[in-house]
């Protein structure tokens, strides 16, 4: 019998040019449980992250793997037991007000999803009040703020103040990331962590997950 989970793990971690969706379709047709395939994909993404950190893979490789993962999840989702995807808890992600860059944010969304988090992606140019609303509505354990533009760093403070005013600051941890973020900003705005890249972001959110 074919070891489809192993083949999926290998195809995704080796960035097979064919992609993993044809293989997933074949595996589902052959009766491989979707949960086994999802686990294989998550393990492959961990391996991709490891190779990225070791310098073997680059940003484009992470993005490619993330895109494959997203396609694969779309295919698997109808076959998964309810609650299987996103079992590690909810994270709110967005690019802050005044900034519309989304490569880094999308990558973190893909990586967190593949690591088993439920991610509510609010998109780009998101005002603080929308983040506050989402925290109230979705009960996440953490918020991730992406920012690239130096000129918009004040938007981080707006989110922190908004959550404080709404009495929600203590319920969530906040991580920031993006080209202009520095340890000084973490201190200035009283956020909880700075992620230098998507792999570190997964590590930070995993350490906060209950």
């Amino acid at each position: 019998m074919e070891d489809y989970p192993e083949r999926v793990r290998s195809a995704l971690s080796e960035l097979d040019p064919e992609g993993i969706t044809p293989l997933l379709s074949e595996a589902l047709e052959a009766g491989t449980p979707a949960t086994d395939l999802l686990r294989a994909m998550s393990e492959a993404m961990t391996e991709v992250g490891r190779r990225f950190e070791s310098g073997e893979y680059f940003l484009a490789d992470l993005v490619l793997a993330g895109e494959e993962m997203k396609e694969g999840l779309r295919l698997l989702e109808p076959h998964l037991p309810k609650g299987e995807a996103g079992a590690k808890g909810t994270v709110i992600m967005c690019t802050v007000r005044g900034d519309i860059h989304d490569i880094g944010k999308n990558l973190v969304v893909n990586m967190l999803t593949s690591a088993g988090f439920r991610v509510v992606d609010l998109g780009v140019d998101v005002p603080a009040e929308k983040v506050v609303e989402a925290v109230r509505r979705e009960s996440p354990f953490a918020v991730g703020l992406s920012i690239l533009l130096t000129t918009m760093v004040g938007s981080i403070g707006e989110v922190v103040e908004g959550l404080q005013s709404a009495g929600l600051r203590d319920r969530v941890k906040i991580a920031i990331g993006g080209a202009c973020t520095t340890p000084e900003l973490v201190e200035r705005y009283g956020v909880d962590a700075l992620g230098r890249d998507a792999v570190e972001a997964v590590r930070i959110f995993s350490s906060w997950a209950t």
Binding site: F58, L59, A60, D61, A179, R196
Partner: peptide
């Protein structure tokens, strides 16, 4: 980007 090349330098 801030922590390295976006593509593999050989690519």
């Amino acid at each position: 980007y801030r922590s390295g090349p976006m593509l593999n330098p050989s690519l």
